[in-house]
Amino acid sequence: MQTYYFDMKDGVPVRDRAGLEFRTDSQAIMHCKELARRFSHERLVRDDNLFVVVINESGAEIHREAVYPDTHRATSA
């Protein structure tokens, strides 16, 4: 199991200090997609530049998911 961190970014990152454990990068990415989907439905703030970013234990960004995908495309490293 590895610990993955799910930061929020809209220019200034909001760091996830606790992280969650997953067996694979793919599982962490699926969780990231679900987080972004939930945030988009809550619509607390409409910031077209808002992303959920997955950071692995080594500190490398492995995935970036747009909360509002109609304005951005998701990317994987």
Rank of each mutant, 00 (worst) to 15 (best):
S26Y: 08
F39P: 02
L44H: 14
Q2H: 07
A74G: 05
R38H: 01
I55T: 04
A77Q: 13
D48R: 07
G19K: 04
R73V: 15
V14H: 12
P69Y: 11
I55D: 00
Q27G: 13
Q27I: 00
K9A: 14
C32W: 02
M1W: 11
D70H: 13
V12F: 15
Y4G: 00
E65I: 08
R38I: 11
G11R: 05
E65W: 01
M8C: 06
V14K: 11
S58Q: 10
V45I: 13
D48S: 14
H31N: 13
V67A: 02
D7K: 05
L50D: 04
A74H: 10
M1L: 11
S58C: 06
E57D: 09
Q27C: 06
Y4Q: 00
Y5W: 08
Y68F: 08
H63F: 10
T75Q: 10
D16K: 01
V14N: 06
R38Q: 04
P69Q: 13
Q2D: 12
Y68M: 01
T24D: 07
E21Q: 01
E42S: 06
S40Y: 03
H31R: 12
T24C: 01
I62Q: 02
V52E: 04
K9Y: 12
A74F: 06
G59L: 08
R64Y: 04
S58F: 09
G59C: 05
F39G: 09
R73F: 07
S26A: 14
L50N: 03
C32R: 06
G59A: 08
L50W: 01
H41A: 12
T75W: 12
V67R: 02
T75C: 13
I62F: 05
R23I: 13
M30F: 04
R64L: 00
H41P: 03
E42G: 09
A66N: 07
H63T: 07
H41V: 11
N56S: 05
E21Y: 01
M8W: 03
F51T: 03
A74Q: 03
P69C: 06
F39E: 13
I62K: 07
R73L: 11
R46T: 15
L44I: 09
K9G: 05
D47E: 14
Y68A: 03
D70M: 10
G11H: 03
